[in-house]
Write a protein that binds this DNA or RNA. Structure first.
Lengths: 206, 206
DNA sequence: CCGAGTATCCCCCAATTTGGGTGGTTTTTT
DNA sequence: AAAAAACCACCCAAATTGGGGGATACTCGG
């Protein structure tokens, strides 16, 4: 059985190098290589790839938007982003768009092959820095100015709950919740829910 | 220069096997190996490790809570979780607690060495399945019942904003925002903000 | 043992928000 | 041309929010 691979990359040399490299593997088959998303999207359902290698910086439609559309057309296809961009916005946009892996272009040829094998094994290949970025996005500030209770309450307000609902869930009075909010607002130097949640997210308090 | 490593693992055989294995590397030094978190925490500041290998299933305090405390004491120390648990709750709890990497115990010996090297290079080593779990946590439902506008508005309410604030940010009337909410509530079959946000998170709509 | 910090609860009040109903128009997409 | 999406308006009652007071009790470290 051959894994069907589609490449979307506007640099002709890279495109051809990838094609040659991947076709060396008897279990890989590069079914198409496109230099833009628009053409790829027209034919991708016909191509029926298991895996797509996607550049981000493409003429007209970029690889992030392309990823969204392809995932909509072929939800089971795994898309690996291959790009020079290492900034967190691009990374998280790509993952939110549905990318399974994210490699930076400086990686050597073996890394590309490894990444595809990794995807086939059910993994999500990422460059070192990308993996760290992703993991760090889960981590909270170790030096929060808020108490445990205040953090708990702030966390619940961020779920859209009202004072009353929070009070019920914590088995305390609504007045107590209000009181905690007064303190939260003072500590975070804000005057309403929205700003408190914004600041809490910025400072990774919740 | 030697990287100082602390091991926290209650199984004596594994603990000793790790110690021997890591000490084979001239640039690694296992400074201590503990069988529980409590003792580790007492001495960890003295040990001043660059890297901690942490089990999850420990007597008394578990490895997740141990990770939180150690990260509080030594924010720069990188903690690699090594466990049999692959369920998503444990994984995300560990990452939120401040773990830098997450390996499953079936991995072979080379994988452990690789993981430490990966951490030193600034990466976040993860087993295949774990990486996929983590990446999937960013991905949205490709088949949302909501329109773009409705999704945008729901997303803003989840940031704690009021109808008025949302209206201003989108340059539309407050009445229009209300109208969209009516449709959102019908589509999601809920009757208030909190339930809408809950359902949106469950179904990965935002 | 004292004081700071935390957590709990209560009252007052005014402005805002919310969710439900009704009814539309205009623009975009198919 | 029909359907879907986005837009706007008015009514209303209940709930929520944020600000101000003030009170009691527990815990932890110096």
């Amino acid at each position: 059985m051959k894994y069907r691979i589609v490449i979307i990359e506007d640099n002709q040399q890279i495109r051809e190098a990838f094609t040659v490299l991947l076709n060396l593997r008897t279990d890989f088959e590069v079914v198409q290589a496109y230099d833009n998303c628009e053409n790829a999207i027209k034919n991708i359902v016909q191509d029926a790839p298991h895996i797509v290698l996607m550049d981000v910086d493409l003429p007209n439609m970029n690889g992030i938007d392309g990823t969204k559309i392809i995932k909509k057309l072929l939800p089971l296809t795994n898309i690996i982003i291959i790009t020079v961009f290492e900034n967190s916005k691009t990374v998280f946009d790509a993952l939110c768009a549905g990318a399974t892996g994210y490699l930076t272009k400086n990686s050597d040829k073996d890394r590309l092959i490894d990444a595809i094998d990794e995807v086939i094994r059910g993994g999500s290949p990422m460059s070192s820095k990308i993996a760290r970025l992703v993991v760090q996005s889960f981590q909270k500030n170790t030096n929060s100015p808020l108490t445990i209770r205040e953090t708990e309450i702030l966390s619940q307000i961020s779920e859209g709950k009202s004072y009353t609902t929070i009070a019920d869930s914590l088995f305390i009075s609504k007045e107590t919740v209000k009181h905690h909010f007064k303190n939260i607002y003072i500590k975070l130097q804000v005057h309403n829910k929205a700003d408190a949640i914004k600041k809490a997210n910025q400072d990774r308090l919740i």
